[in-house]
Design a protein around this nucleic acid. Structure first.
Length: 297
DNA sequence: GCGACAG
DNA sequence: ATCTTGTCGC
């Protein structure tokens, strides 16, 4: 597994090779992000469960039947037309699609939820339920959750321009955290957003920082990269005005993006909240699906 | 050998 | 990640 991670890190591109600029994904504060899915239909989900074609699941029997086990809402795009008259809408249909991914766990399965945003609004949501076989081992997270994430992403009808994953990317012993792993396998730009630091050292102490602050995370001790290499950043996305403290985020490039741009993108996606909007929304959706599953049996 | 260690 | 009510503060 570790050898595979070194191969993945070798193929990974930690430089900007994406068509997404921070300004293109900024979250509008003028819209209520906490409410809703697009379209009038309420989200009364059906089942889910797509078998995994994960790297850890040898018996990947066919997923023949339902390709749409999870509901998905995508807005209709006018055929062959960019912009003409009547372009009063603020909706830029050419804006990049940012997809957030998050998971909720069951007994021996995991719900992987994906939420696609464009111009800060949800354009599609889908999910998959996959079996879990490998335990959580620091440094090997992708082997446990990577397959299930691919399961969910394969149900999306929209093509992501950027993936926002829970966990690290380059901030990893072998520079192949789950964001890098998934990004490389799909060859899609990806960033990793973690709530705690796996490895590497911050340039400055991360304690008691105000919103907007950030400091580089550099390779050290066990990280297989030239000592001093900037592998990510600690970023204080939000802070209370008073005594109570909020921990910073640890953001790092997954694939086809630099550490600097990763920081800018995450900044643009947080909009006053601790977590980037795609992650927050996928988080809530995963819990929603999980509870609905626990509901009937 | 001991400690650290994403979700 | 998950088990879980209230509680402090804007």
């Amino acid at each position: 597994m570790e050898a595979l991670q070194r191969d993945i890190a070798d193929v990974a591109v930690f430089e900007d090779a994406l068509e997404v600029a921070p300004a293109d994904v900024a979250i509008d504060d003028s819209f209520d992000l906490s409410s809703g899915v697009p379209g009038p239909s309420s989200d009364s989900d059906s089942d889910s469960g797509s078998d995994s074609h994960s790297d850890s699941d040898p018996h990947s029997d066919s997923d023949s039947h339902s390709d749409s086990d999870s509901h998905s809402d995508s807005d209709p795009v006018p055929p062959g037309r960019q912009s003409t008259l009547g372009e009063q809408s603020n909706v830029d249909r050419s804006a990049p699609i940012v997809v957030g991914v998050d998971q909720a766990f069951l007994e021996d399965a995991v719900v992987s939820a994906v939420v696609a945003l464009r111009n800060g609004r949800i354009v599609e949501r889908t999910h998959a339920v996959s079996p879990l076989s490998i335990p959580y081992i620091p440094g090997l997270l992708a082997f446990r959750e990577g397959g299930p994430i691919l399961d969910a992403l394969s149900t999306l009808s929209i093509d992501p321009d950027l993936l926002v994953l829970d966990g690290s990317g380059r901030i990893h012993f072998r520079q192949a955290g789950i964001a890098t792993h998934v990004g490389v396998l799909l060859d899609i730009p990806a960033v990793g957003v973690a709530k705690s630091l796996l490895c590497g050292v911050p340039d400055a102490s991360v304690d008691e920082r105000s919103a907007g602050w950030s400091t580089p995370i550099r390779a050290a001790d066990g990280v297989e990269a030239p000592a001093g290499t900037v592998i990510g950043h600690a970023y204080q996305s939000r802070q209370y005005p008073n005594e109570r403290r909020i921990n910073p985020l640890y953001v790092s490039p997954g694939h086809r993006i630099s550490a600097e741009t990763t920081l800018e993108i995450v900044e643009a996606l947080c909009a006053g909240y601790k977590l980037p909007a795609p992650t927050r929304l996928a988080d809530a959706y995963a819990d929603e699906v999980k509870r609905s599953i626990l509901a009937d049996d």
